[in-house]
Write a protein that binds this DNA or RNA. Structure first.
Lengths: 233, 233
DNA sequence: CCTTTTACTTGACAAATATCAAGCGCTGGG
DNA sequence: CCCAGCGCTTGATATTTGTCAAGTAAAAGG
């Protein structure tokens, strides 16, 4: 049902790396890997957390909001899990999820996870670390929102994007602009204007292609700090 | 060094409730309980996480921000811990903390915690649950910020405050208004105006005393949802 | 008791952000 | 190839939120 290659990808996740083979097999019993096309809703906020989802390929958008207005909370890329906290607490999902590319999603029954925690200390330890990391990521996102303006958030996003791709000054936006706008907490119109505002700081945009020519100027504006912008800090 | 009463309070924390006495004793070795006056900075963001802090009495404000502007991220009240994630990851604090009342703070060496996790599965399990709860709390806060206007955030805060105190329609603000403003992501001036905006919805304010006379009207405006406003969901 | 400070409020104004409407330029389907 | 649809941009305007300045009220301290 699952190709060895994909299975290995999941095995290598920090979350599962240190558990023994038997425990890993038990965990995956009843799991299934499925390929979804773009723009498919995988989970809806408020639903019970029956499965832990692992993005093996593609990309998934976590979003929230009812009655018309909604907001992108995060983008999940391979290989990582999402909504782990809901699974552990056996609580309803706080966010909805949909694919933004064709994606391979592994779904592991929540009960397997909960039993695994109880019986396997190595898994429990990995979970503690994983959740602590998730918590810190959301806190950083919170700080980003509360302490920075829209233009600053965009500037920092671009700096990080460039740095992640080697700091060449040339990068491509990995997501649609309207999704980026929502992720950064603004409207698409505002994102366009924010790009225009950054032009004097050496930011040029052509479609999805980004060019940063005055990184130092941009940094002076963005004032990046590891305690917000470094995912590993 | 620590009164039995205070010790018991800490023992009853969900985080420590299920571990055995020996493990608890080991955990508390080298810890100390200290009383701080109001407005004392306990930790500064960026510092290494040497201690897990437990608020045994009083109240602590978690905040962030440099160069003049800062923002309140959370208020921690007895009996609970803060900055657990930093301790676990052995990473720098993401937020600063200061007392907003005279407070009794128990400080547990981080190394005790990390050793405890490795050796005691019960502690690991409790941590997983605790962290999952913390994660969900921050996600809710994020949704609150991204999906609601300042007035809506205030309305929901007041509804929750009243509900927590029995839903009598009469409550007192437990924190200063300027702290509340920052917690809700607005300026003190804006908070004053938000209160004025809510007057037609039955909200009256006299000093710290709040009276809600048209709860149903207020709910229609606030549109509270458990997935943002219920700390237990 | 008076003085000084501090929190809060209010008003006028400025800046940031959202909304509405129109138009441009791809892209994909017939 | 043409056309329709969609994402994006731009302009005009409205709303929200922040800033600055002044004033009031209440608390803290001598």
């Amino acid at each position: 049902m699952m190709r060895a290659e994909d299975r290995q990808k999941v095995r290598d996740l920090r979350l599962f790396r240190d558990i023994d083979d038997a425990a890993f097999d038990a965990l995956l019993a009843g799991s299934y890997l499925q390929r979804f096309p773009t723009h498919v809703v995988l989970i809806r906020e408020g639903d019970p957390a029956d499965f832990l989802h692992v993005v093996v390929g593609g990309a998934v958008e976590l979003f929230s909001g009812r009655n018309g207005s909604e907001s992108t909370m995060d983008i999940v890329r391979p290989v990582s899990t999402f909504i782990l906290a809901a699974v552990i607490k056996d609580a309803p999902y706080l966010m909805s999820a949909r694919t933004i590319e064709a994606s391979d999603i592994l779904m592991i029954p929540s009960s397997n996870l909960r039993e695994g925690i109880a019986s396997d200390p190595a898994l429990g330890l990995a979970m503690v670390t994983e959740l602590a990391g998730c918590y810190r990521a959301v806190v950083k996102s919170n700080k980003n929102l509360k302490l920075r303006s829209a233009v600053e958030r965009l500037a920092n996003y671009l700096l990080r994007l460039d740095a992640d791709q080697g700091g060449t000054g040339r990068t491509d936006l990995p997501i649609e602009k309207r999704v980026l706008a929502s992720l950064l907490g603004m409207t698409p119109e505002n994102l366009s204007r924010a790009f225009a505002t950054l032009k004097p700081y050496g930011v040029s945009v052509t479609g999805t292609a980004i060019e940063l020519t005055k990184i130092e100027d941009l940094k002076r504006l963005a004032k990046p700090t590891p305690l917000v912008d470094d995912p590993d800090a």
